[in-house]
Amino acid sequence: SLEELLKLARHALRHGEEIHVLDRVITDEHEIKRLIEELERLI
């Protein structure tokens, strides 16, 4: 769900981890922040 993805993204950002989204691995902090902003808009 989007909520789950948002939780994962926030966790990854906090802990400096990578996040796997739709067969992509996002490691860049700015990309993760952008993902979080997009998800928050959708929810």
Rank of each mutant, 00 (worst) to 15 (best):
2 L>M: 09
36 I>A: 01
1 S>K: 15
24 R>H: 08
9 A>C: 05
36 I>T: 02
40 E>H: 05
18 E>F: 08
10 R>K: 13
15 H>V: 11
30 H>L: 12
20 H>I: 14
6 L>H: 02
15 H>L: 08
23 D>E: 08
34 R>Q: 15
4 E>C: 03
20 H>L: 10
32 I>P: 00
35 L>I: 10
34 R>N: 12
37 E>D: 13
43 I>F: 06
21 V>M: 11
14 R>Y: 14
21 V>Y: 15
21 V>Q: 05
33 K>N: 07
26 I>T: 03
28 D>I: 06
30 H>A: 14
33 K>D: 04
41 R>G: 07
39 L>F: 04
35 L>K: 01
13 L>F: 04
23 D>G: 15
36 I>C: 04
28 D>Y: 05
19 I>S: 01
37 E>Y: 13
6 L>G: 00
9 A>W: 09
13 L>V: 09
42 L>T: 07
38 E>H: 15
43 I>Q: 03
30 H>M: 13
41 R>W: 09
41 R>D: 06
10 R>H: 13
19 I>H: 02
36 I>Q: 00
40 E>N: 04
40 E>T: 06
12 A>L: 04
24 R>E: 06
35 L>M: 08
15 H>F: 11
31 E>R: 05
10 R>A: 06
11 H>V: 06
15 H>I: 07
24 R>I: 09
42 L>W: 06
29 E>P: 15
22 L>G: 15
29 E>M: 15
1 S>L: 11
8 L>W: 05
4 E>F: 09
29 E>G: 10
29 E>W: 12
4 E>R: 10
13 L>G: 03
34 R>V: 11
3 E>C: 06
8 L>V: 06
11 H>Y: 05
8 L>F: 05
38 E>K: 13
43 I>S: 02
12 A>S: 03
41 R>L: 09
17 E>D: 08
30 H>D: 13
17 E>P: 02
35 L>Q: 01
6 L>Q: 01
23 D>T: 03
1 S>T: 12
43 I>P: 01
3 E>V: 08
8 L>Q: 10
38 E>W: 14
33 K>M: 13
2 L>S: 03
1 S>V: 14
4 E>K: 11
27 T>A: 11
30 H>G: 14
2 L>G: 01
8 L>Y: 07
39 L>S: 00
3 E>A: 06
33 K>A: 10
24 R>W: 08
5 L>G: 00
5 L>N: 02
25 V>L: 10
38 E>A: 13
10 R>Q: 12
26 I>F: 13
2 L>Q: 04
36 I>N: 00
29 E>K: 15
35 L>T: 02
35 L>D: 00
23 D>N: 08
33 K>T: 09
28 D>P: 02
31 E>F: 05
25 V>C: 03
40 E>M: 06
17 E>R: 10
24 R>S: 07
24 R>K: 11
27 T>V: 12
29 E>L: 13
17 E>A: 09
43 I>C: 02
16 G>C: 04
2 L>Y: 11
16 G>L: 06
22 L>A: 14
20 H>V: 13
40 E>L: 07
32 I>Q: 03
16 G>S: 07
15 H>S: 13
11 H>A: 10
18 E>D: 09
13 L>N: 04
5 L>M: 11
29 E>Q: 13
30 H>S: 12
18 E>M: 10
35 L>V: 06
7 K>I: 11
41 R>C: 04
42 L>N: 05
16 G>H: 13
37 E>T: 12
36 I>P: 00
28 D>L: 10
7 K>A: 12
32 I>D: 00
43 I>V: 07
13 L>T: 03
42 L>G: 04
8 L>G: 06
31 E>Y: 05
15 H>A: 10
10 R>L: 12
11 H>E: 15
41 R>K: 12
28 D>V: 07
22 L>I: 09
42 L>R: 12
4 E>P: 03
2 L>D: 02
12 A>Y: 01
31 E>D: 11
22 L>Y: 08
19 I>M: 13
42 L>Y: 07
42 L>A: 10
38 E>S: 11
24 R>A: 07
8 L>N: 12
2 L>P: 05
21 V>G: 04
27 T>C: 04
31 E>C: 04
4 E>G: 07
35 L>W: 12
7 K>M: 10
25 V>N: 06
15 H>N: 14
23 D>M: 03
7 K>N: 11
18 E>S: 15
23 D>H: 05
40 E>A: 04
18 E>C: 08
20 H>E: 08
26 I>P: 02
8 L>A: 11
17 E>S: 12
21 V>K: 03
24 R>F: 08
11 H>M: 04
43 I>A: 03
9 A>R: 00
3 E>M: 07
20 H>R: 14
6 L>A: 02
28 D>S: 13
5 L>R: 05
6 L>N: 01
27 T>W: 09
17 E>L: 15
39 L>N: 00
42 L>P: 00
18 E>H: 12
36 I>W: 01
11 H>F: 02
8 L>M: 11
26 I>E: 01
34 R>A: 15
34 R>E: 14
18 E>T: 14
17 E>F: 12
10 R>F: 08
33 K>V: 13
21 V>R: 04
24 R>D: 05
33 K>Q: 11
4 E>W: 10
31 E>A: 10
36 I>E: 00
18 E>W: 05
10 R>M: 11
23 D>S: 03
40 E>Q: 06
7 K>W: 07
34 R>S: 13
3 E>Q: 07
35 L>N: 00
12 A>N: 02
22 L>C: 06
12 A>D: 01
42 L>C: 03
33 K>R: 14
10 R>N: 13
40 E>C: 03
11 H>L: 05
3 E>D: 09
25 V>K: 07
8 L>K: 15
37 E>K: 11
4 E>L: 12
24 R>P: 02
16 G>E: 04
38 E>F: 14
19 I>T: 02
40 E>R: 05
27 T>S: 14
29 E>T: 14
2 L>F: 08
17 E>C: 06
7 K>G: 09
29 E>S: 14
31 E>H: 06
34 R>W: 11
16 G>V: 03
